[in-house]
Amino acid sequence: MKNFIVSFDDTQTAFSAKSDADLRRAYGLFRLISYNWLVRISPPFVNAALALHLPVKGIIRSTIFRHFCGGETIEACDGTIRSLAQFRIGTILDYSVEGKESEVDFDHGLEQTLATIRRAKGDPHIPFSVFKPSGFARFALLEKLNAGQTLSEAEQLEFTRFRKRVETICELGAANGVPIFVDAEESWIQDVVDQLVREMMMRFNKERVMIFNTLQMYRHDRIDYLRQSLEHAKVNGYKAGFKLVRGAYMEKERERAEKMGYPSPIQPDKTATDRDYDAALRLCMERIEDVAICAGTHNEASSLLLTELMQSKGLATDHPHVWFSQLYGMSDHISFNLAKAGYNVCKYVPYGPLTAVLPYLIRRAQENTSVAGQTGRELSLIIQERKRRRT
């Protein structure tokens, strides 16, 4: 079996899709993001500027939106899809409008998600579709249900509509051969999501993995949940699918646990998170014929570990049950170098109206500053490539 050595220091490959002007813009953007205080204070100023109709949309569009988003519509993402495809990288179209609470918004989000499935049908460059469960129901409803509280008759109807939306997405994905990623949520609504996704797996994952749940490994209980889930799939005769991430709500989780006086669901430190993430990769690789995984990570060590596990089992780099994924605009040194080596790679490509996607963009910027070394690593690689091109 040939060894495929991947170097994440190969900036020529990492930035092969970027022009010199693109690199300059990326450098300026990550320099701004590197100032934690600026990222913290920017949301109220941006919101106020928009409310006062100050001319900031153009600035946002040409900087953070252009770097992290594919466009405002599915059609506007076509250029990004084609560009990534040239380097063997797939696109996951992610309708990234957050914080909506009305039935009209939920139905609109459903139509957008169904549209991404229809766009992905038959297109090898769009290997998955994705949705966030809280985009289809009121957060308070899911929270109440997760806490085991009795729902009113009106709330029961709300939940029925939520369930129907999820079923409709899974049905269309299965019918069109487009696997579905279900994104993770905060711990206090995740049990409801886990149960529903398991039901969808049991229904649609008989022959191949069409439905993937997302496990946030910064939760200390997720490794045990993964073991239980793999056993449940084996006993009940279906294939399991998991997107493995470290997580996105750590500070919020800890603050809520402290405020409400219950034990934090978060790992005690990053070392524990890294340990469980890598353990999850090993667990899934042990049963890789019956489970499909997507390593949704910007962590170089975990990405290399997965390539080593694949090699040790004699798996082809493009084994259909193993994918790597990073966010569009981030960690191109991982995505492009893995793709060049023949591994299955896809990028989450957010899209949506600029002002509606802004909460997502701000959250991503804040997450970037909270991940130790992330912004610094992006900057150092950009600087390295700019120097290489000048020599």
Rank of each mutant, 00 (worst) to 15 (best):
A115H: 06
V97G: 02
K121Q: 15
F139L: 13
E98L: 02
P124A: 15
V178P: 06
Y95G: 01
L157D: 11
D123L: 14
Y95M: 02
N146M: 08
A137K: 06
C170S: 13
S152E: 05
F136N: 02
S152M: 06
E103I: 05
P133E: 01
G90Y: 10
A137M: 07
L145R: 13
L93S: 10
F131A: 06
L196H: 11
R161T: 08
V130L: 14
I92D: 00
I126G: 01
F181P: 04
R198M: 11
E103V: 10
R88W: 07
D191Y: 04
D183T: 13
S129E: 01
R161C: 08
T113P: 03
L157N: 07
S102Y: 04
L151P: 07
E171K: 15
R198E: 08
V197D: 00
S129T: 15
I92N: 11
G173D: 03
A147S: 14
S96I: 08
L114I: 10
R165W: 05
S152T: 15
R163Y: 10
I117C: 06
V197W: 02
N146H: 09
P179K: 11
G99S: 11
D105I: 05
D123E: 13
Q156T: 12
L151W: 04
R163C: 07
G99D: 07
N176V: 01
I92K: 02
E167R: 12
K132S: 03
F159C: 05
G177W: 05
R161E: 07
P133C: 08
K100A: 12
E186P: 01
D94Y: 06
S129R: 06
A154S: 14
G173M: 12
E98S: 01
F136K: 02
G90I: 14
A120F: 09
V192G: 01
Q149P: 00
F106H: 11
T116L: 10
V130K: 07
C170T: 07
D183N: 12
K132M: 05
P124C: 13
E186H: 08
G148V: 08
T116F: 09
I126E: 00
L151E: 04
V166T: 09
A140W: 00
P127A: 13
T113K: 11
V182L: 08
G99Q: 09
A174C: 07
D123W: 10
V178A: 08
V182T: 13
I117N: 01
K121G: 02
N146T: 14
G122A: 12
K121P: 00
L142W: 01
S102D: 06
L114N: 06
L142F: 03
G90N: 11
L93T: 10
V104D: 12
R165M: 06
R165K: 13
E143P: 00
K100M: 13
A154K: 15
V197I: 14
